[in-house]
Amino acid sequence: METNAAGRTRVLVEMGMMIALAFVLGQIKLYQAPFGGSISLEMIPILAVAFRRGAKVGAATGLLYGMVNLFVDGMRYIVHPVQLLLDYPVPFMLVGLAGLARQRPVWGTVGAGMLRWCSHVVSGVVFFGAYAPEGMSPLVYSLVYNSAYMLPEIAISALVIWYLAVRTDVLPGRRVP
């Protein structure tokens, strides 16, 4: 993060604005899965911050987006305290790590999306550990369920990031994928 106060303010405001945009885009759902989880473009603004400002700012933006989402809308999907963390703040924080691959936004998007997917899968395993009888295979179920919306969302996000990187000035640098 930039060290002087003015640069810092600029970064803070941009983080807030992109979180708001992520929330708005999150409400435009291309598909809604029955137990929570949907396909939308909500990752794009977080990815944009990550590519513009680096992984640290990106991860912080993702974390705070998860919290805003939880405070405004997410409490409907809470069934377990650990699930709360693994479905809201943690996955989007992982999305922000895309900033580690600033020169390769498309691959960064795919990698960060995979990390988010892992977090949702673990959260599903925690849920089943707490509520389902012993002897079921929670991992397989969670993997199938979360892949159903996460894989298309990762693909769509990568496509949109590619478009933004090639055609617009939203992302810095032009070296893609």
Binding site: G16, I19, A20
Partner: peptide, 9 residues
């Protein structure tokens, strides 16, 4: 940051 986000949603 969160307050700005809430204000601008």
């Amino acid at each position: 940051v969160m307050t700005i986000a809430l204000r601008f949603i």
